[in-house]
């Protein structure tokens, strides 16, 4: 146990079999065994990487409580990845994609909003989305962001009744973020009678992935 903690402290961060072997000055096969042992004790988990396997090693034991939280849902569905500020888990219920999308808009964080646009492609219950948007007085923003998402990525068609409902929605103020307006999504802004804090150039991130 103590030996494992020493190893974990030395290897904390993102590693590969090669970096483990270099760091500890051991053979590749020994590095694989060490990784296996640390995984068994809950200090190591696989972390992204397609061609090469990446390991995330942390002294915090891998105790997974509850269901995926906001950042995990964003990470699962969006091709643009975020640096997660903290681990978020939901206990006693499952956070739906609809809820995650509304939370993303509520953060008023431009990067999170851009990343969340891909969630529109995974909406299963448009009525729930509309209901949640109504509760937060974000209906027209959600509608406008949907249209903005359609300019850059392939997105599922929104239910017409829901779209009409969103169009009639109330908002607290026309700006989502301070007094920021879009430079080139003016048509969408006009249609929904609000101002978006993003430009087409911001959405080009989707083309890079």
């Amino acid at each position: 146990m103590n030996k494992s903690i020493e190893l974990v402290k030395k290897l904390e961060g993102v590693q590969t079999v090669e970096t483990i072997s270099k760091e500890l000055n051991v053979k590749r096969s020994t590095a694989i065994n060490i990784a296996h042992k640390l995984r068994k004790e809950g200090y190591l988990e696989n972390w992204m990487g397609r061609r090469k396997r990446l390991y995330k090693i942390t002294p915090k034991k891998n105790i997974r409580i509850g269901n995926p939280g906001f950042y995990e849902i964003l990470d699962k569905y969006s091709r643009i990845k975020l640096i997660v500020p903290y681990e978020h888990r939901v206990i006693g219920k499952r956070l739906t994609v609809e809820e995650a999308l509304i939370r993303a808009v509520k953060t008023k964080n431009i990067r999170i909003i851009i990343v969340s646009l891909e969630l529109f492609n995974h909406i299963e219950n448009w009525r729930l989305l509309s209901k949640l948007a109504e509760e937060e007085k974000l209906e027209r923003f959600v509608g406008a962001l949907y249209d903005a998402a359609r300019t850059i990525i392939k997105v599922r068609r929104m239910d017409k009744r829901v779209r009409n409902k969103l169009l009639k929605g109330k908002v607290k103020r026309k700006h989502l973020l301070l007094s920021v307006k879009s430079k080139d999504l003016k048509e969408i802004e006009k249609r929904w009678n609000i101002y978006l804090p993003i430009n087409k150039a911001d959405l080009m991130m989707y083309k890079e992935w």
Partner: peptide
């Protein structure tokens, strides 16, 4: 510096 957030309803 919060590292983890758990949501219990």
């Amino acid at each position: 510096r919060i590292k983890m957030v758990y949501e219990y309803n």
